[in-house]
Write a protein that binds this DNA or RNA. Sequence first.
DNA 1: TAGCAAGTTGACCACCCGGTCCGCTTATTG
DNA 2: CAATAAGCGGACCGGGTGGTCAACTTGCTA
Lengths: 199, 199
Amino acid sequence: MTSPRPLRADAARNRRLLLAAAADEFAERGLDASVADIARRAGLGKGTLFRHFATKDDLLAAIVLDRIDELGALGEQLLDAADPGPALLEFLTVAADQQQQRDLSFLQEAGELNADVIRAREQMFRTVHKLVDRAREHGAVRADVTGADVILLMCAPNYVTSYVSDAPPDLWRRYLAIIFDGLRPDGAHPLPHPPPAAP
Amino acid sequence: MTSPRPLRADAARNRRLLLAAAADEFAERGLDASVADIARRAGLGKGTLFRHFATKDDLLAAIVLDRIDELGALGEQLLDAADPGPALLEFLTVAADQQQQRDLSFLQEAGELNADVIRAREQMFRTVHKLVDRAREHGAVRADVTGADVILLMCAPNYVTSYVSDAPPDLWRRYLAIIFDGLRPDGAHPLPHPPPAAP
DNA sequence: TAGCAAGTTGACCACCCGGTCCGCTTATTG
DNA sequence: CAATAAGCGGACCGGGTGGTCAACTTGCTA
C-alpha cells in the first residue's frame, strides 16, 4: 500500500527543503508563485521539484494536507475540553494563527482536484460542526448559527487583514474577536437568510 | 481638460460592450481573466480593447472607479439619514450587494497603480469613517470600533460566501448580519488588538 | 570499494499572457 | 458623395509559465 522503498537520505532532506520553500513562497506571493522560484529558494533544480511532486497542485496539496490534518487533530482534542465556548474560540484562534501570513483560499481552491485533501478537509469540517454544536448547547454560541457558518467565517480574519499594508502580525485577532462577538448569543439579532447546507 | 472630441458612435457603444464584458468576465473568473477572453466576449478584437484601455489595469480601474464613486455617493447621501445605525447597515448592504458575485479584492489590488482609483477610494473611505463615527455617537456601534475596522470588514461577507459552491445569491446577507452584530455595543467583549491606522 | 539504482539538473518545449502594429473599414462631415 | 480621420482587428512579439528529458552525480548495499 505505502511506498515499498524508503526515501534515500538526501532525497528526504530535499523533499523537506522543497515543502518549506514552497510554504514560504506561497505565503509571500500567493498561489501563483512559480515553481521555478520555489525550486531556487530551496536551492534545488526545477526537475527535482517535479520528481517529488508530479504537479504544482500536488505540491500545494501536500502543504495544505499537513495544515488541515494539524487543525483537525487540534479540533478533536478540543472536543474534550471542559468549556466548549473557549474551546471553539481557541480552535478559531489557532486556525487563523496557523495561516497568519496569507488567506487560506487555497484550502478551497486546491482541494478541487486532490482527493486526499478533500477527504481530510471534510473530516476536519465534521469536527468543527461538533465543536460548534457543543458550544451552542452550552449557550456560548447563538442558537441560529451552524457549523457551516463558522467554517465559512473561519478564514475571514486573515482575509480582512491581508488588505492592510504592513499589518502588525496579530491584527487578525481584533477581527476574530469582532466576528466571534457576532456569534455569541448576547444581543443577537435574527439572521436574514438560512445557513448553507454545503460545508 | 476633458476629451476635446466626443467619441464616435460605434466607438462609444464598443466601449460600453467592453466594460460590460470585462465586468462579467472578472466576476466569473477573477482578476486573472485574460484580455483575449474579454474582447471575445464583447465580440470585438483584442486591439480594440487596447485602443480604449491602454492596459489591462486601466480597464479594471475603469470598472472599479465606477463602483467606488457609486458607493461614495450613496455614503454621502446616508450621512444625512435620520438614524445613523440603520444608515451604516444600509451602506454595508449596498456595498456587499453591489459586489455580490465576487469578492472586491481588486478594489485594493488594482488601486496600487491608478491614481484616480486611489483618490476615489480614499474619499469613499473618509465617508465611511464619518458614517461610523455618527453611528458610534448614536450608540449603534460599539465604542472600540473604528471606520478602518468597518472598511476592512466590508468585503468579508462576499469573500466568505464565495467559497460555497452554488451559493444562493443572498447568502452574504447572513454573514453581514453576523458581522454587524459583532459591531454592535450589546454584549461586546473587549478587543485584543488596537485598530490599524491605515485605511 | 564497485556497481547500480535512485536522485539531480538545467536546457528545452509548448503554451498562454499582455501588449503592439499596420492594413483595412466605417462614421462623420462639408 | 467624397474625403478623411477615427476606429477596428488579428497576426505577431517577447517574456514567463508548468512540465519533460537525457546526461550526469551520488547514496546505498553486497
